[in-house]
Design a protein around this nucleic acid. Structure first.
Lengths: 119, 119
DNA sequence: CTAACTGTACTAATCGGATTAATACAGTTG
DNA sequence: CAACTGTATTAATCCGATTAGTACAGTTAG
């Protein structure tokens, strides 16, 4: 399903979150489809169930998935909310860029900032 | 000069930085005035000189003060107002990047956004 | 009702990076 | 030279984040 890169220094639960988010946003895991259970995924990745639990909890708080005790965890129905949020963020980003420009901060500096701390 | 609140859980060097920045931005320490030496301040606060050194180093990188080996450390001409604004903006930018990450927007897309409209 | 699944809550152990300390080096000044 | 300055480097410490262990609670199929 997903695989963990152990050269990546970030915490495991972050990597799990990223992997799942990718699958969800790409459509490989369609809305309402069921995710592996906490224990299943933990077993298949050879890590502690609580670590998966944490990933699921945070994905839920982001609105990415929905978990139901006793039943399982499912991909949320998004319905374009994501794209709208993205537009809002883009507008904010532009405003900030304009201010940086006003201060005379070179774009290269911002780009460097953007590149740090990605997978 | 300044006093350290030990209920505040933040690292000492951060508290020292804050205290000094306050004095500088408020005008209590005017531009070009001399700060206590690393060892003086360390002594008076009963903490390790290296901790003060770190505070000074970071304040310098923020443009707040200027240090000269053998001579001392001095409040910068513009009080670091510009650099401070830049720091605030950078913090905001980070917050936005985090949100984009959460949405699964690839960094490349943001970088492209940054590059457009730069003359 | 029971068994075998699900997710969840809580506490304790571990680990790693941030913070602090110790020490030595180098520049300025009188 | 002596007595100050700031700086660099390494080692010790500390603390919060991460992970693990364990027990609890809801759902469903037989």
């Amino acid at each position: 399903m997903i695989q963990i890169n152990y050269n990546d220094p970030r915490p495991i639960y972050e990597k799990v979150k990223d992997g799942l988010r990718r699958l969800i946003l790409s459509g490989a895991l369609p809305p309402d489809s069921r995710l592996p259970s906490v224990r299943e995924l933990a077993m298949s990745l050879s890590i502690n169930p609580n670590t998966i639990q944490r990933a699921y909890r945070e994905l839920e708080s982001e609105g990415c998935i929905v978990s139901v005790p006793g039943k399982g965890s499912f991909v949320a129905r998004d319905g374009g909310a994501r794209e709208q949020r993205k537009r809002e963020l883009t507008e904010k980003l532009h405003a900030i860029i304009r201010e940086f420009d006003a201060l005379g901060v070179p774009r290269e500096e911002l780009i460097a900032l953007l590149k740090e701390g990605k997978e």
